[in-house]
């Protein structure tokens, strides 16, 4: 009886580990975070304030969209190491279009198309070469970063004007970029849970051979997952361009690892077949909240990094513990 109860606790904690971690973090924040009397503070806490809600969602938009994209690839049992480089290239393309006077919608459409095409190309390469996604996307990481530097002739692009400013403007207390992320999470959640394609993504990641024998078009599903990842990266790149209002070929360095971290903390398994858009969102939110709390507490960035490593390890350990049974 007692044992059963313990396991059920574990099951809950393992299934909702991102959420459990986030709630604990919020509890800690309530006690620790500095207090002041700015308007909109709940319990007088700087952390639980409307200003911080804006701050967190503003910071979350880019890593959140990247993490949602990474989730599709991770669910198929793959990994995308090229996301940061792709973000850098797309950031430069968006910036260059805006600099030359293109409208927001034309720029966005072009960037979304290129991003999706890059994703699809990577998926195609994985299918055709039968190489590990790690290797294919590692090559993509190197090439796309190079392409970004060539595209901008090794310079930053600034003076973009204000066409993308509306993405940063608050609507109902949250930056438009935050709303876009929330819509993206909702759409991807529905896609993964309630469509044939979604089920097949899980099937491909769970056991590609079994999926193949049961008639799942494995290659097409994988291609779709990588293309969707590319689309999410493009969305992230547009939001990134809006927030920084410039283009830098070095932008997004190492962001692919943040995206993978968010997915893993949110309960995704790098072996494929486990994970969800909602879980990844919670994972990304957890990391941003942790970052904000560390800055509010005046803890050095490097100490924070050390703790993030510990948290990833604990998250993966918990998954393993639950799934071994």
């Amino acid at each position: 009886m007692r044992a059963t109860k313990q396991w059920s606790w574990l099951t809950i904690a393992q299934r909702y580990q991102g959420l459990v971690g986030l709630l604990l973090l919020l509890a800690v924040a309530l006690v620790l975070a500095p207090h002041n009397s700015a308007p909109g503070n709940l319990f007088g806490s700087v952390f639980f304030s409307s200003a911080n809600l804006r701050n967190v969602l503003g910071q979350l938009a880019v890593p959140g969209a990247l993490a949602i994209g990474a989730t599709f690839v991770i669910l198929t049992g793959g990994i995308d190491l090229s996301a940061g480089s792709a973000l850098g290239l797309l950031n430069c393309i968006a910036a260059s279009w805006l600099l030359h006077g293109a409208s927001a919608s034309a720029t966005a459409a072009y960037v979304l198309t290129i991003g999706t095409a890059i994703g699809a190309l990577l998926g195609l390469l994985v299918n055709v070469t039968k190489l590990q996604p790690f290797v294919v996307t590692l090559a993509g990481m190197v090439s796309l970063r190079g392409a970004a530097f060539v595209y901008t002739n090794n310079a930053n692009i600034s003076g973009l004007g204000h066409n993308f400013d509306f993405l940063e403007a608050p609507t109902l207390g949250i930056p438009a970029a935050g709303w876009i992320l929330l819509l993206l999470v909702l759409a991807c959640s529905i896609l993964l849970r309630a469509t044939v394609f979604g089920r097949r993504v899980y099937a491909v990641g769970g056991n590609p051979l079994a999926a193949e024998y049961s008639g799942v078009p494995v290659n097409r599903v994988r291609l779709g997952a990588y293309a969707l990842n590319g689309l999410c990266i493009a969305i992230a790149a547009i939001l990134f361009t809006a927030r920084n209002s410039n283009g830098e070929p070095s932008a997004g360095l190492g962001y692919e690892l943040d995206a993978i971290t968010a997915a893993v903390v949110g309960g995704a398994s790098l072996m494929g077949g486990y994970g969800s858009a909602g879980g990844t969102f919670i994972g990304a939110l957890f990391i941003v909240c942790l970052n904000v709390l560390l800055i509010l507490q005046g803890v050095s960035y490097y100490v924070g990094q050390g703790w993030k490593g510990v948290i990833i390890l604990v998250a993966v350990y918990l998954q393993n513990l639950g799934r071994r049974n």
């Binding site: 606790w9 904690a13 459990v20 604990l24 620790l32 942790l290 050095s300 703790w307």
Partner: peptide, 26 residues
Amino acid sequence: MSWKAWFGVIALGAALAGCGSGSSTA
């Protein structure tokens, strides 16, 4: 188990956060 693990991580992090900021938070 997992609750404890999470709690441990957060509590340690919090303790550290407390140390790091020292007097400044107060």
